[in-house]
Amino acid sequence: MATGADIESWIAKLPLGDRKAFDALYNATSAKLFGVILRVLKDRAASEEVLQEVYVKIWRNAARYKANGLSPMSWLITIARNAALDRLRKRKSAAAEASETLEDTLADPAPGPEALAIAAAGREALVACFGELEEDRGAAVRGAYLDGLSYAELAERHDVPLNTMRTWLRRSLIKLRECLTR
C-alpha cells in the first residue's frame, strides 16, 4: 500500500518526464480512481475513457499540483471525480459546462497562494460529522459527491420538492462546516 508521501514524491517527479514514477503512481492509484469514476458513470466503457483522460491530465498538470495545497490523494480523486462529472453532465445536457472549469480552479489558485493554508478537517472528523447529520440528509450530500447527482435528481431520489432539497443540502453544509471546524 502506497503512502501519501510515496504518491506525493511520484507526482513531484512527473514534470521531469519520469515514466517510472508515472507507472508507480498509476499502479498504486488507478483502481481507486476507476472505482470513483465508475460510481458516477455506472458504465464501464465510458469509465475507461475517462480514466485515460484523467491520467493524461495528471501527467500534464503535475507541475501545478503543489500550488493548491491539497493532499495528493484528494487531488487525484478530485480530478477523477470532476472528469466523470463532466462526462455525465455532457451526456445529460450539453449546456452544463460549468464543471469544465473545476480543474482550472484546482490548478490555478487565486492571488496569494501562500496564504492558502487549507483548513480542512481529517477523514475521521468527516465520518463523525456525517454521523451527526440526519441519515437522509447525509445520503443526499453523498449522492451529490459520489454519484454526481444534481439537485433535481436528489429531489427525485428522496421524493421531496426541489427547493426543499436545496434547503436540506445547504443546511447540511452549514452543519458539516460547524462540526468540521470544532
Binding site: 476507476f34 470513483v36 469509465s47 489558485p109 487549507i118 481529517g122 468527516l126 459520489l146 468540521l180
Partner: peptide, 23 residues
C-alpha cells in the same frame, strides 16, 4: 478559494467508501 479547497479536500474523503476496481 481556500473555502472551496477545504470542501474539496474533505469531500474527497468520501471516496474512501468507494470500492476500488482494477481497470
Amino acid at each position: 478559494h481556500a473555502a472551496y479547497l477545504a470542501w474539496v479536500e474533505e469531500f474527497a474523503g468520501l471516496a474512501e467508501e468507494v470500492r476500488p476496481e482494477r481497470p
